[in-house]
Simulated assay, not measured.
Amino acid sequence: MALKANLRKEYSVRRRLFSAEQIDMASDRIADRFFAEYAPQPGQTVHTFLPIRQHQEINTWRLVERLWQLQVQVAVPVANPADLSMTHFLISPDTQFREAAWGIPEPVNALPIPESAIDLVLVPLLAFDLQGHRVGYGKGFYDRFLALLPKVSQKLGLSLEPPVDLIDDVHVNDLALDAVITPEQIWTFHPHDTDAPGGESR
């Protein structure tokens, strides 16, 4: 069985095998696919995680810089460990950052933004399956956040690796992603269409 805890452990180990150069190359390819398929309009707001470099995460700074060039607003999360919630802040090229808990870059003195103003979210993950369900780090921050978004907001996962067939212990309240972008392709899902296949590649 492909259980979240086992996948989290396995894919954390697999990720540590990527070199910094491989991460950067994969990040560029993911960014190219994102802008080819999902390029937002000027004035829209894209929410993204910022990379924890020691976790070998996708370098989303490459996406952020291109979003700024398109006059797209960029929001990032700040985690609140006490209640496992997140607040969200707009960032610009002038924003100052500090390294917070878990090595996450957090903005200093940035402007807060509500979930209702977010058009698209780039979601971190360790693994995902053909139904669009993800395995994160296990704290539940993103599960709570995604449930607060407007239904029209797009939820796009970013992954270094292709999907597993099925995550066996998906919770009834787990929200499926709309798509996941990998360096090789985009996997799209239809969480609201029970007759559609779980995932397709393009």
Rank of each mutant, 00 (worst) to 15 (best):
A110Y: 00
L7I: 04
A196V: 12
V13S: 12
A196M: 11
P197A: 11
D169E: 14
A79R: 04
A79W: 02
R62F: 05
D83L: 04
M1L: 13
I167S: 03
L146M: 10
R134Y: 04
P197T: 10
G157L: 03
V78E: 06
R62I: 12
P163L: 06
L84A: 12
I186P: 01
V121K: 00
I104S: 00
A82K: 13
S92T: 10
A176K: 03
A117Q: 13
A31I: 04
L156F: 03
L158P: 01
S85N: 11
D178A: 08
F141G: 01
Q131H: 13
H190Y: 14
A26S: 10
V72A: 05
A20I: 13
F34T: 02
R8L: 09
L70H: 15
T48R: 03
A20W: 09
S116G: 09
N6G: 14
Q71P: 07
Q54P: 08
P191V: 07
Q185T: 15
R16W: 07
Q54L: 11
A82C: 08
L125Y: 01
M25W: 11
L111P: 07
I118L: 11
D119P: 02
P114L: 04
Q54S: 13
E10K: 13
R16S: 08
P107G: 01
F189H: 07
L63Y: 04
V172Y: 12
D83M: 03
T45M: 12
L122I: 11
L84M: 15
V123H: 01
F49Y: 06
N59K: 08
Q56S: 15
G198Q: 08
H192M: 12
I118Q: 02
P77A: 05
A82E: 13
R53V: 14
Y38I: 05
R8E: 09
Q56E: 12
F35R: 08
D165L: 12
M1R: 12
V13A: 14
G198T: 07
K4F: 06
Q96I: 00
A20D: 13
F145Y: 08
R33F: 05
D119M: 07
D32V: 09
A36W: 08
T48P: 04
Q131V: 07
R16E: 09
L120H: 08
E57M: 08
E115D: 12
V46N: 03
W187Q: 02
V164I: 13
E161R: 13
E200A: 15
Q73S: 14
D94E: 07
H55P: 07
P197S: 10
A117M: 10
E200S: 12
L126E: 02
Q22S: 09
E200H: 11
T182E: 04
V123E: 01
D32Q: 11
L125H: 01
V170K: 06
R66G: 07
Q54W: 10
V180D: 02
Y137Q: 06
A110E: 00
R33S: 09
G132L: 04
G140C: 06
A39R: 14
R33G: 06
I118E: 01
A100S: 11
L122K: 02
M86Q: 06
F34P: 00
L126F: 04
Y137W: 09
G198S: 11
E115L: 12
R202M: 13
D119T: 03
S159M: 02
V164E: 08
